[in-house]
Design a protein around this nucleic acid. Structure first.
Length: 377
RNA sequence: ACGGGUGUAGCCAAGUGGUAAGGCAAUGGAUUGUGGCUCCAUUAUGCGUGGGUUCGAUUCCCAUCUCCCGUC
């Protein structure tokens, strides 16, 4: 299953749930799992230099094929020597295929058996991703981990629609697998099935023969209630192959990470940290705080007292509140640094908890302190 | 001093003899494989001030004050 470029070694396992720690090797370095991956859709984690992303603790980042294909274009990235050189990030990179844009840009695309046609949100130009062309584009971008072209159905989709979408997703997987030739890129299949448990298991079963280096769970964290997500993860947990990493796509708030880890998920990504930062929200051990709130106007303490991030070591809530409220971009930068650092520190703590075999207790402690409602207890 | 105009929320501003639009700001909230997009909620028992007419006045009338423009 594993080959020289993509070894995955499980280093410890929880005795009480599916949580495990591991080390995933890629051509650009090793990743300790469970891990959170900051998102840099257009070949940049918004607002931050790669050095700052690394200093915040990031081991691997994401970029997006749809967005990088539109601008600057895959050929230009290839000419630059690939994403790593182009953006000066020398650690591992994962590119999403554009499958999520099938969902998020629903009114700008058309599906057929052969692939997905998009009408560019930038200039209206029509272009098509087939599984083959998508693999070619992702090959040119040069990420360490690439995703199959898939179809993510919305929450509330009918069973009939999901069955049809899943049939395409698995056909596209086979074609991606056949078109995927670069041994320095790991291709992850994506499990869909929407919120139908039997379809989820069917989708997983269909994907397994092509899951050589890792497998992803897609189509969750798209607006469904928290308990619904939990049920889906619990449904899948015992069926995931244990010798490869499991990636829960698009999930990355603390509660989703904890539930994911408990159910055997190893990799998470989320725009939450950086998007919230731009909107003035900071994640702390005691819950999220909206830095715009008036009560921080004269609060000259860090976002979180014991946080070791660049923002907390050097700046106060009052200052960051000022920056956010007048629209200075430095405010969004500082909050992005903090939120990314906080989340990576959070997964560090989770890894330690798994090694000590007390991840469930740590989860309870966290929920108690972080949330003020009963939903997560 | 005289003539004309003006005055509605922190700012800009609509409006009507029947019980105060909208925008900005402010204050809360939302945001999960990022269209740096954005969305939602709240915010004037009161329309410069004092009288009068009227069932009812922010609106009409009188007085007064403010600021602006013009003239001497």
């Amino acid at each position: 299953m594993n080959d020289e470029h993509f070894l995955f070694e499980v280093t410890s396992k929880s005795s009480e749930c599916y949580a495990r720690t591991g080390i995933f090797s890629t051509p650009h370095g090793k990743i300790e799992t469970p891990i959170f991956m900051p998102v840099g859709t257009r070949a940049s984690v918004k607002g931050l230099a790669p050095e700052e992303v690394a200093e915040a603790g990031a081991q691997i980042i994401l970029a997006n094929t749809y967005h990088c294909f539109l601008r600057p274009g895959a050929d230009i990235v290839a000419q630059a020597g690939g994403l790593h050189k182009f953006m000066n990030w020398h650690g591992p990179i994962l590119t999403d295929s554009g499958g999520f844009q099938v969902f998020s840009l629903e009114n700008l695309r058309k599906l057929d058996d052969d692939g997905v046609s998009f009408k560019s949100h930038i200039d209206g130009k029509i272009f098509k991703f087939t599984p083959e062309s998508n693999m070619e584009v992702q090959n040119k971008l040069g990420a360490d981990i690439i995703m199959q072209l898939d179809i993510c159905s919305p929450y509330g989709a009918t069973r009939e629609d999901v069955v049809a979408a899943d049939a395409r997703t698995v056909e596209w997987l086979k074609r991606c697998y056949a078109a995927h030739t670069n041994p320095k890129q790991a291709l992850f299949p994506i499990v869909q099935g929407n919120f139908y448990k039997d379809l989820r298991l069917k989708s997983l079963e269909n994907a397994l023969p092509y899951a050589k280096h890792g497998i992803a769970v897609g189509g969750l964290a798209i607006g469904e209630p928290f308990t619904v997500l939990k049920e889906q993860l619990e449904n899948l947990a015992s069926h995931l192959p244990t010798d490869i990493p499991h990636y829960l796509m698009g999930a990355g708030t603390p509660d989703y990470i904890l539930e994911g880890v408990e159910n055997g998920i190893d990799m998470f990504d989320c725009v939450y940290q950086t998007r919230m930062a731009r909107h003035g929200m900071a994640i702390t051990d005691d819950g999220n705080i909206n830095i715009r709130n008036k009560k921080y106007q004269t609060d000259f303490t860090p976002i979180q007292n014991d946080c070791q991030c660049y923002a907390c070591r050097n700046y106060t809530k009052a200052y960051i509140r000022h920056l956010i409220s007048v629209g200075e971009m430095f405010g969004a930068r500082l909050l992005s640094v903090h939120n990314i650092h906080w989340t990576l520190n959070f997964v560090n703590n989770i890894r330690a908890a798994i090694r000590e075999d007390r991840v469930i207790a740590v989860k309870r402690e966290f929920y108690q302190r972080f949330y003020h409602d009963d939903l997560h207890k």
